[in-house]
């Protein structure tokens, strides 16, 4: 049995349901679980908003000292830090699962993942690169962003239930207890940058470059879209679209491909527009507007740093002294 799961807070349940619906259509043999970084008891969702998929709350999976992690991390960091802890929970509590696949909630699966299932029979880990070829310009995102934040996108990871994958998950968990922060100068970018180590540390890691996987704004430059008469989406007229990742897309701003990219507008990429229109419709039909009103119980008010000028003035002589010492 393959267990597919996602992680989100209640405000993203429209996305998680849309993903679940797509898996039900395309991969009905998968068991799908929503990992919830939120509390159902606090939200008290009305019956029509309770998803038709099993939900597993993050405080139920036995993360050691979870409260301290909540205190340390902001909502993005927390939502990503718990990923390997969920995988570990499934390894320990769902022994019938021969493979575990993580999808970000903002993904739609379009096709049966037959080749992926096959690849998971022999590979311990399956990773998908942000882009399989050089980026064409220095618009956002470009190769430098991927160097700073990780060459693989961790909106997807496939793991076989084996010794190597377990060892990787144990190592990943340990890293994320304290270092799932965003601090590019220190080499840190949530859970994702760490996964660069996977092919260096482990031998049985598949870097899957099939162009139909994890299609998103970061790889549009190498992927052109068309449709067969039967409706199947094709990429570069060869690879079938298997799953699309709508990262940074907001259905209330349907004219923006993603808030994180500057390379394309829909007028330049009309080929991809119908895929976003489809997502917009599905999200709205899945009560996106209602869900977004639920604040996450783990969210902290953002820390506002006051007196930046005062801080700068204090640091000026310290920096002079450092420079003096460094230049001998």
């Amino acid at each position: 049995m393959t267990l597919a799961f996602t992680i989100c807070s209640i405000n993203y349940l429209a996305q998680a349901r849309t993903l679940g619906d797509s898996l039900r259509r395309t991969n009905p043999d998968y068991q799908y679980v929503i990992g919830l970084v939120d509390k159902l008891s606090t939200a008290n969702l009305p019956a029509d908003l309770v998803p038709d998929y099993p939900m597993l709350e993050v405080d139920k999976i036995g993360i050691p000292d979870f409260q301290a992690m909540c205190d340390r991390y902001d909502i993005t960091e927390l939502n990503t830090a718990v990923k390997p802890f969920f995988i570990d929970y499934f390894y320990k509590n769902r022994p019938e699962a021969t493979a575990v696949i993580y999808f970000d909630p903002d993904i739609i699966v379009f096709q049966p993942l037959t080749e992926l299932n096959k690849a998971l029979e022999t590979n311990s880990l399956i990773l998908t690169p942000h882009t399989c070829s050089p980026t064409p310009d220095w618009e956002r995102p470009n190769e430098l962003h991927h160097l700073n934040t990780g060459v693989f996108n961790l909106g997807f990871i496939g793991l076989r239930t084996d010794k190597i994958a377990r060892a990787f998950v144990d190592w990943w968990k340990e890293r994320l207890v304290y270092e799932c922060r965003i601090d590019l100068c220190e080499g840190l970018f949530v859970d994702q940058h760490w996964v660069n180590f996977a092919p260096a540390y482990y031998q049985n890691v598949c870097i899957d470059k099939y162009l139909g996987y994890n299609v998103a704004y970061w790889n549009l430059h190498e992927r052109q879209f068309s449709q067969r008469p039967d409706g199947t989406w094709l990429i570069n007229e060869t690879d079938e679209l298997r799953f699309f990742h709508y990262s940074g897309y907001n259905p209330f701003r349907p004219d923006d491909i993603s808030k994180y990219q500057t390379r394309y507008t829909f007028s330049q990429r009309s080929d991809v527009k119908p895929l976003f229109d489809l997502y917009c419709r599905e999200l709205l039909a899945n009560a996106n507007e209602q869900y977004t009103k639920y604040p996450c119980v783990y969210i902290k008010p953002p820390t506002i740093k006051r007196y930046q000028r005062v801080r700068k003035a204090i640091k000026l002589p310290i920096n002079r002294l450092i420079s003096l010492l460094q230049h001998r």
Binding site: P129, L147, V151, L184, C185, N196, P199
Partner: peptide, 17 residues
């Protein structure tokens, strides 16, 4: 480091992909 740069070496991270 803040810009993701380090000599010729860091670019090799892209080679396998």
């Amino acid at each position: 480091f803040c810009k993701g740069l380090c000599t010729d070496q860091i670019w090799l991270m892209h080679a396998p992909v």
